[in-house]
């Protein structure tokens, strides 16, 4: 994540600047989307639509953007949420107890893939903001302060959000929570 985020006036962005934003951030948006979607082609669609929406949005945007990356991730996340509103979430199989101490180092790729799919399915069952906190904290390695700024919350509220997200995940993954 960028160390300093100067305020950007979206209406002042030149064509060149927007092309550079695409170059710089589209790989990150792809990763962000893929981790939730688990499908390369759909993740590419998400990247395209996110930047397309971004272009349309900045034409009418009055307020400056302080963190373009966070802004794009939020748009991508909304896209994913929309996507799963139109089709069912991937199944969260409950026939296997996933204790992390036993399975945190899966030997085979197949087993690893299965666990990945289950973690993804569990993550998608959390409320949107909790999903964002988990992604940004543990997969993008952002600090609490950075996540707080991105979500427009206080760092304390972000910590509480993370705590609730981890509890929910623990129930879903390890303590055989209910499949919603």
């Amino acid at each position: 994540m960028e160390a300093i985020n100067p305020l950007i006036n979206p209406r002042a962005l030149t064509k060149q600047a927007l092309a550079e934003i695409y170059e710089q951030h589209s790989p990150g948006v792809f990763r962000y989307a893929y981790r939730l979607l688990g499908d390369q082609e759909t993740a590419e669609d998400c990247v395209s639509d996110t930047f397309s929406r971004f272009l349309r949005a900045i034409r009418h945007m009055e307020t400056p953007i302080d963190n373009i990356q966070a802004y794009l991730y939020r748009m991508a996340h909304n896209w994913v949420m929309d996507h799963f509103r139109k089709q069912p979430l991937p199944p969260l199989s409950l026939d296997d107890d996933l204790h992390p101490n036993q399975k945190d180092n899966p030997s085979s790729q197949v087993a690893k893939k299965m666990i990945q799919e289950r973690v993804r399915a569990a993550l998608l069952r959390l409320p949107a903001e909790q999903q964002q906190v988990i992604q940004l904290r543990f997969l993008e390695d952002w600090s609490h302060d950075e996540v707080a700024a991105a979500l427009g919350k206080s760092p304390e509220a972000t910590r509480a959000l993370q705590h609730r997200a981890m509890e929910s995940l623990r129930r879903l993954l390890i303590e055989k929570g209910n499949d919603k």
Partner: peptide, 25 residues
């Protein structure tokens, strides 16, 4: 910043981080 990660079950964090790797585009 991993200050608070050890507050949680490190195994759970490892499970989450299985999602970190993404395929080459």
């Amino acid at each position: 910043n991993t200050n608070n990660q050890h507050d949680y079950d490190s195994g759970l964090v490892k499970l989450i981080q299985l999602l970190r790797e993404t395929p080459e585009r």
